[in-house]
Nucleic acid binder design. Structure first.
Lengths: 218, 218
DNA sequence: AAATATTTTTAGACTAATCTAAAAATATAT
DNA sequence: ATATATTTTTAGATTAGTCTAAAAATATTT
């Protein structure tokens, strides 16, 4: 039997290894899980014994194929619940993450497959992230970060990196949502801020915003 | 913060005290929770410290008003999720209990109030049990158990005591569901079995079935 | 290549929830 | 009313997950 804590570590390792390097180091996991390195060492030993991870002392950790399967399944559940919360229960996109963190651990294949069908097999969650299907397959959308977009080009907003309530509320208040059309007007070399044009307005966003907003060229 | 285990003990104590006596004894809780009496003693001490229960050594336990509030809220969540599973996700009434046991512990007022609204404020769950409203009020239906029904009278099936999959499947296979009209034909004194008439059939049910089926006179 | 800094692991302790076995309290029977 | 049985509590141990502090390994700097 896999515990809730094990699931959360597996998910954290998956996310850390999908943005970048393949082996994940102890401190990175500790900071993602808001815990101490010594606790992480204990847990990755356990994950290794249970065959969810490959681990050699001092060398970092990678997920086994079984570990990846578990991670993707949790992500599938998380994102399906997020769609449910937004589309059926009137949650806004900045409110869903915390509740979905809990719902994602409910163990019932029938529950999640029926939920998938009830929602008509959505392929993206409310933040633009792809939802794995029952077999764990999901599309990798070709997206770039606003910080690397080119001046003069027009893009569609397709996702966010940071899903914190703060960031999402900032986007709401500036009328940026999934699907919003954005034209890059000017990049300011001094502070890396970017001037963008929306449908009815022009705004300047800071570098930290520009690094967390995903776009697709149109 | 209240833990999942504390919630489950509180729920068990609530159910044990609502069918009958007001103070609940240690062994009864142990058997309901499938654990040992010594574990129960430890937990009721803790519940008592946290003001969810009143407890004097060797004298059994009762819930405080705060304990009751917690219990009723868990029951509300459990039953609302059961309605959701049956009405929206194609679960049958014998499949819902186990999943609802987990969903009932998700902590989000918005989640449960929006779910309530989404389901159009149902007042009974799929087993005929009343669903408490946001303030914790629920109707107590006047019901009797089939074992105590009178020969010659006609009743409507309004609920079950045992919600195990086995029992519910038995009822399904004999075409008994909530709302089914039942006339009591004969009580057999030898084994306390009862012959009942349904719409298109007459069947004999055992005493253990008769004790778990709730009826309302019509 | 030594010295220093950083990262990771180990050792030992803590908490929540559980267990077994024994002791204490209460209830029942003769 | 005493003996016996049952129930409940205590004492001490166990497991999962965490922590602190120290030790060991690795990485970086000079």
């Amino acid at each position: 039997m896999i515990t809730l804590t094990e699931e959360n570590y597996i998910k954290a390792i998956y996310h850390l290894s999908s943005n970048g390097e393949k082996t994940v180091n102890t401190n990175a996991i500790a900071s993602a899980m808001q815990t101490k390195a010594s606790s992480v060492t204990d847990m990755i030993k356990k994950l290794s014994e249970k065959n969810y991870a490959d681990y050699k002392k001092y060398q970092g950790v990678t997920l086994t194929s079984e570990g990846k399967r578990v991670a993707i399944n949790i992500i599938r559940k998380h994102r399906l619940w997020e769609v449910f919360l937004v589309e059926k229960l009137n949650f806004s996109w900045d409110e869903v993450h915390e509740v979905a963190e809990h719902l994602e651990h409910i163990k019932s294949d029938k529950l999640i497959d029926e939920l998938d069908a009830f929602l008509e097999f959505p392929t993206y969650d409310p933040h633009g992230d792809p939802i794995p299907d029952k077999e764990g397959n999901f599309k990798h959308i070709e997206k770039i970060v606003l910080a690397k977009a080119e001046v003069g080009s027009t893009y569609k907003c397709v996702g966010v990196d940071d899903t914190s309530s703060k960031f999402l509320k900032y986007l709401d208040s500036n009328h940026i949502a999934l699907g919003t059309i954005i034209t890059v007007k000017h990049k300011e070399p001094f502070d890396n801020s970017i001037k963008i044009a929306l449908e009815h307005s022009e705004i300047v966003v800071s570098q930290s915003v520009a690094k967390n907003l995903y776009l697709k060229k149109i």
